[in-house]
């Protein structure tokens, strides 16, 4: 229960950071970082997937309500959580991790490189969905891919800063 409250508070914090800082700061037209996806990276391994899906929906809804982008972040968050199950199947061996006493995904599991690729896969999924709905045009397909990749890399950098600030392993 405490963990749920922690995630709700964390979610509100990330939503505020996103709408007050990252939405307002214009780095470049092709870089729009959304580091709040970090919330999905620190989910416990044993979390209820239905609960996480519904939680992601309301989390996205909150960011949309704060930022006035109704539906965009919600669609991206819901899709990210849904796709994350398949990414996890490819990248993680949950049984092995639990045997090692890991409750969360940590860098220690397979190193920096692995963690970077894993995080990038999730971030890219999120950003891709977001920018697909943002641009919403077939002719902008390459722009969407380009902006998604650049923004995912920027988000990854900001996530590392968060990790350092929050002291996460």
């Amino acid at each position: 229960m405490i963990e749920v409250v922690r995630f709700i508070v964390g979610g509100l914090f990330f939503a505020l950071i996103q709408t007050l800082i990252f939405k307002e700061v214009n780095i470049a037209w092709w870089i729009k970082p959304m580091p709040y996806v970090y919330l999905f990276l620190i989910l416990p391994l044993s979390s209820n997937r239905f609960g996480v899906l519904i939680g992601a929906f309301f989390f996205g809804l909150t960011i949309d309500a704060f930022g006035g982008s109704l539906g965009m972040h919600t669609a991206a968050c819901v899709t990210t959580v849904f796709v994350k199950n398949y990414i996890d199947l490819y990248f993680l061996d949950e049984n092995s991790m639990q045997l090692q006493g890991m409750r969360y995904i940590q860098i220690d599991y397979k190193g920096w490189q692995w963690y970077g690729i894993y995080s990038f896969a999730i971030l890219f999924t999120h950003h891709l969905v977001y920018f697909i709905f943002d641009y919403f045009s077939w002719s902008s397909l390459f722009t969407i891919l380009f902006v998604s990749v650049c923004s995912a890399i920027a988000s990854l950098l900001f996530i590392q800063i968060f990790r350092l600030l929050l002291g996460h392993k």
Binding site: I54, D64, L70, G71, M72, A75, V78
Partner: peptide, 19 residues
């Protein structure tokens, strides 16, 4: 998957409605 589709549709509806 059905819950995902339902939630996604809800989000997409909002997008098409408010943007």
């Amino acid at each position: 998957p059905l819950l995902y589709v339902l939630l996604l549709l809800s989000a997409v509806t909002q997008i098409f409605r408010y943007h």
